[in-house]
């Protein structure tokens, strides 16, 4: 765990120093929220929960919970998820420990 955090910290510093996109260097998810209607999540790690009011996604930094009304997944591929509907809340859950 400690080793992992140290590695991430070093990677972040390198990315900052070389002005590289951190989501590429650190394998972080990238979120693009358009108003309250559309959310594009790149670099996700799978779908956890999908209902009309909640969509939960696994990411490298923990669970991403999207809450709202009439939520729909317009497109889902290995790399990205396109969610639309009336988005009310986006929050990060606890990070899942890798076994």
């Amino acid at each position: 765990m400690g080793k992992e955090k140290k590695k991430e910290g070093f990677g972040a510093k390198v990315a900052e120093f070389l002005e590289l996109p951190s989501e590429v260097v650190l394998n972080l998810p990238r979120l693009i929220l358009t108003g309250d209607q559309q959310l594009l999540v790149e670099n996700h790690q799978g779908l956890q929960v999908y209902t009309c009011t909640e969509i939960s996604l696994n990411t490298s930094v923990g669970a991403l919970r999207v809450m709202g009304e009439e939520l729909n997944i317009k497109l889902i591929t290995q790399d990205q998820v396109n969610i639309d509907g009336r988005i009310r809340k986006v929050e990060w859950g606890e990070r899942e420990e890798n076994p």
């Binding site: 799978g46 779908l47 999908y50 209902t51 009309c52 729909n72 997944i73 317009k74 497109l75 889902i76 591929t77 290995q78």
Partner: peptide, 12 residues
């Protein structure tokens, strides 16, 4: 997804 399948217009 892991097998490379692309899904769209997913509705519950």
């Amino acid at each position: 997804l892991a097998a490379g399948v692309v899904f769209w217009d997913i509705q519950r």
